[in-house]
């Protein structure tokens, strides 16, 4: 009796050990993939890295040299546009959710919809903006690209603003309101100020998210082989150039694609690590 129960206990212990080892293996597997992907990007990317990357334009096929200057600039402009459009809308919509719609159906609905937009397939956004902007204006353009990115940018900002504002203790709201200060002033001067780090990191996180987006730009910004600052024209951008060059048979183009991929990945990862660490500290996790 006693011996059988200890053997049962041993078996259970062994089972537990096996299961937990499998968990360790799963984690190792995840890490292996992470390292593998980053290693691949690093390996190919570093080899192709050169100063010409940011001083020269995307070359025509079969010509040596060249860089990605126009694509970097284009991406920068479109991300900037998305931030300019998206930040006020995102922050204010987040404010609405956290401050003006508590417990209301409308607020709940918007929060629900926002969370769905957060994970909605980004190619759908591309289709939508093509119909919304490209067809009516009759032109692929940097504007269309920037607006498509804004559609992805806004939900991230809404979500973090909403969460960060809700972390501000009610005591602060009540104290300020009891002094007879108008609500909008309370929101701007007290709430935004105390949640500013959180909101800002939310914006950084959103920038990281849109910087690597390819699908929404395919039918909106198209691409451009020249340097262009004209937002009404088709615009070069890093993700689409990477996509085109990576799939090309020309070695020079493939090298540029890897270099672009490396720079983009490094930028996105550093940005998201930094903002996440801010966010976690703020969230008190």
């Amino acid at each position: 009796m006693a011996s059988s129960s200890t053997s049962l206990y041993r078996r259970r212990q062994l089972g537990s050990l096996i299961a937990l080892t499998l968990c360790g293996i799963a984690t190792a597997l995840g890490l292996v993939f992470l390292i593998w992907i980053i290693w691949t990007t690093l390996l190919h990317g570093l080899a192709a890295l050169s100063p010409a990357l940011i001083t020269e334009m995307t070359p025509p096929p079969g010509e040596d040299g060249g860089g990605l200057a126009n694509a970097f600039m284009g991406s920068l402009l479109m991300v900037f546009l998305a931030v300019v459009i998206g930040t006020p809308i995102g922050v204010l919509a987040g404010t609405f959710l956290s401050e003006f719609s508590r417990g209301k159906k409308l607020g709940e609905t918007i929060r629900f919809v926002n969370d769905i937009l957060l994970s909605a397939p980004s190619i759908i956004i591309g289709l939508f903006v093509y119909e919304l902007i490209v067809r009516p204006t009759g032109r692929f353009s940097g504007f269309a690209g920037g607006i498509a990115l804004a559609f992805i940018f806004v939900p991230v900002v809404v979500r973090t603003t909403d969460e960060m504002l809700r972390l501000v203790p009610d005591v602060m709201r009540e104290a300020a309101l009891s002094l007879g200060i108008p609500r909008w002033k309370v929101t701007v001067n007290v709430l935004y100020r105390s949640a500013s780090t959180g909101i800002l990191t939310g914006i950084l996180l959103a920038i990281a998210r849109i910087s690597g987006e390819t699908a929404p730009l395919l039918f909106t910004a198209l691409n451009n082989q020249y340097w262009s600052l004209d937002m009404t024209q088709p615009m070069a951008n890093i993700p689409v150039v990477i996509f085109q060059f990576a799939m090309s048979p020309y070695e020079q183009w493939q090298n540029l694609a890897w270099a672009g991929a490396f720079v983009m990945t490094a930028f996105v990862l550093i940005l998201s690590v930094v903002s996440r660490s801010f966010l976690n500290r703020k969230g008190g996790k």
Binding site: I37, G212, P239, A246, A257, W258, T265, V268, S272, V273
Partner: peptide, 13 residues
């Protein structure tokens, strides 16, 4: 971090 890697990089890799 895996979530932060742009999807096109997954594609190339």
């Amino acid at each position: 971090l895996l979530a932060g890697i742009p999807s096109i990089i997954y594609g190339m890799w």
